[in-house]
Computed example of a mutant assay.
Amino acid sequence: MDDFTNGREADDQGDALVQEDLNKLLGTALGVAGEQLAAHGAFAPIGLVVDLDGGVSLVAVAGAPEDDGAQELDADAMIADLYEALTQQRAQNRAAAVVCDIHLPDDVTDAIHVVAEHSTGVCVSAVQPYRYGADGWEFSNPFLESGEKIIWA
């Protein structure tokens, strides 16, 4: 009986840590993307990690240079590069997320899209629609759905 109780407490603590890590990533990701929208009217894909000590860090990749030296924003290539970098760094992290801008054609709006993945195998996706209104940027409540594991697949 003691083993079951101790094991259950460990599971509860583990579940709480996973939830805390994913909440950190989702909250930080939505906040950073919202700040970039407010400051620049757009945002490039970025990554975030929760390291083994629980610290949150930003991971960024550069767009491919064009022939004239200007930076090109190829979001799909940047997202692929982020996943490659995060997969290579996964032993150093407990969780990671990729944040990008998507278009929701059925709603005729854009949205912040975050896929947050934990090393324990949990993966969640958050989508937060936004638009520019008369009073500036307006953000709808995000909705969550299961995500596709890539980093710890």
Rank of each mutant, 00 (worst) to 15 (best):
D15C: 04
D74S: 09
E35Y: 04
Q88G: 13
Q19L: 14
L26N: 13
A70V: 00
D81Y: 05
S57N: 14
L17N: 13
G27N: 12
A64D: 13
N93W: 11
A42N: 13
E72H: 09
L58R: 10
D53K: 10
K24H: 10
P45E: 02
L30D: 01
L26I: 15
A85E: 15
D51E: 05
A75K: 03
Q88H: 11
T87S: 12
V49K: 06
G69P: 05
Y83S: 08
Q89T: 03
H40W: 12
D21R: 08
D21V: 02
A29F: 08
D21L: 04
V98F: 02
V49P: 02
L17M: 15
K24V: 08
A75C: 06
L86C: 09
G55V: 05
N93Q: 14
D76Q: 07
V49S: 07
G54Y: 04
Q88N: 12
D101T: 06
A44K: 08
A97F: 05
A96K: 05
Q19N: 11
R94N: 07
K24R: 13
D76A: 11
M78H: 00
V32G: 01
F43M: 03
A62K: 14
D74R: 11
D76Y: 00
N23Y: 12
M78S: 05
E66I: 00
I79P: 00
A97H: 07
C100Q: 15
D74Q: 10
D51S: 06
P65Q: 03
L30R: 10
D21G: 06
G69L: 01
D21K: 00
L26H: 09
D12S: 14
A42L: 09
E84H: 07
G47L: 01
V56F: 07
Q89Y: 05
D68G: 00
Q36P: 01
A60H: 12
E72K: 09
E84D: 14
E72F: 01
L25N: 02
V18M: 09
G14P: 01
G69M: 01
K24G: 07
Y83Q: 12
D15R: 12
N23P: 03
Q88P: 08
A85V: 15
G34E: 06
V32H: 03
L30K: 03
L22T: 06
T28L: 04
A96I: 03
G69V: 01
T28S: 07
D21H: 13
A62E: 15
L26E: 10
V99L: 02
E72P: 00
L37C: 02
E84K: 13
Q71T: 13
L30W: 01
H40S: 14
G54Q: 03
D67A: 15
D11C: 01
A77D: 09
A97K: 00
G14V: 04
V99W: 10
L82A: 08
V98H: 00
V56T: 14
E84R: 11
G54T: 00
Q71N: 09
S57A: 13
L22D: 02
Q71A: 15
E66F: 00
P45Q: 00
D74C: 04
L17V: 14
G14M: 09
A44T: 11
G27Q: 07
V59H: 04
I46L: 14
G63Q: 03
V50E: 09
D81S: 13
V59M: 06
V50H: 08
